[in-house]
């Protein structure tokens, strides 16, 4: 085979694989939207689940998801960002810290069901938080803290050392260098990491089923100790029923979930682009 032909073949192969990914995604999305479209309406968003498919809605799951992600972010963001700042800016460079880093990377790759079991043992049983938003959020926070740490560490690492040197040379103290120069420069990267981590937690089902998200909730939560359900759990519940109508509801729920996820990802992209503009212009 000539070199030109090899070149063309490789090019074609990469192109084919890329197209394949996009086509599969498009097929899945079209399928879901086609199935769910007739069920989506304002009422669908504003009604509680019901035994009768035509009266069922997703309100409690949508509210549950909003409660859970807010509380999850509340726990996970400070822990994750502060840990990343410690690891990147303060920690000594030795074997113990290397070991800690490797373990954080391992935690980020752990199956979520294991976090669910941990949450069940610790938050639901040991601390007695029961099947509440609090238990679910703490469990999800455990799940996304490693992701936030890794993303934030990467963002901090990409802040050029010359910026730190400039700040030190101006007689700044270490905390001033970190808070007033390094963190603001790393913020877009950190924000993107946080949003992507949270959007991962929005899609999680297994750990929440284990720690007690309910399949049928006919009210919106009033406090963090209330029982709750979230979008993916509600979708799972509908999809598991034999009646065809509920499958339409599940598809509609997926569309809502995807809308939430895509808007969060869009937000991440906007933040990234905006900060790139202000830094270069």
């Amino acid at each position: 085979m000539t070199r030109q032909r090899k070149q063309k073949l490789f090019h074609g192969l990469c192109f084919f694989m890329t197209t394949l990914t996009v086509v599969i995604l498009a097929v899945l999305l079209t399928h879901v939207v086609m199935e769910g479209i007739e069920w989506i309406s304002f009422e669908f968003l504003d009604r509680f689940p019901s035994r009768k498919p035509h009266k069922a809605g997703i309100k409690s799951a949508l509210f549950g998801t909003l409660w859970v992600i807010s509380l999850t972010a509340f726990f996970a963001v400070p822990i994750g960002v502060a840990t990343a700042v410690y690891l990147q800016e303060y920690a000594p460079k030795n074997r113990i810290m290397e070991w800690v880093r490797i373990n954080i990377a391992n935690l980020a790759g752990m199956p979520s069901i294991i976090y669910g079991l941990l949450g069940l043992a610790i938050f639901v049983r040991f601390f007695g938080f029961e099947r509440s938003i609090l238990s679910g959020s703490l469990t999800l926070a455990l799940l996304i803290v490693p992701i936030i740490i890794i993303a934030s560490e990467g963002a901090l690492k990409s802040v050029p050392n010359s910026l730190r040197e400039a700040a030190y040379a101006m007689g700044a103290r270490k905390w001033q260098v970190v808070i007033f120069q390094v963190l603001p420069s790393a913020l877009p990267g950190i924000m993107t990491g946080i949003i992507l981590a949270i959007s991962r937690s929005v899609g999680e089902t297994a750990p929440l089923i284990i720690t007690g998200a309910l399949g049928y909730v006919a009210f919106t939560p009033e406090s963090i100790s209330d029982p709750y359900t979230v979008l993916p759990v509600q979708i799972y519940n509908w999809a598991a029923r034999p009646q065809v109508e509920f499958h339409g509801l599940a598809a509609a729920g997926i569309v809502v979930l995807l809308t939430v996820l895509l808007s969060m990802n869009l937000l991440a992209v906007i933040i990234r682009n905006k900060s790139q503009k202000t830094r270069t212009s």
Partner: peptide, 28 residues
């Protein structure tokens, strides 16, 4: 470092306005 300032090999202004670059040192 307040008494002995330094200018580096590559220009490294803070990613802020010109004005803020000047007052940052005295401020912190």
């Amino acid at each position: 470092r307040r008494k002995v300032g330094m200018v580096f090999q590559r220009p490294n202004p803070f990613p802020k306005s010109i004005y803020k670059n000047i007052i940052w040192g005295p401020k912190v």
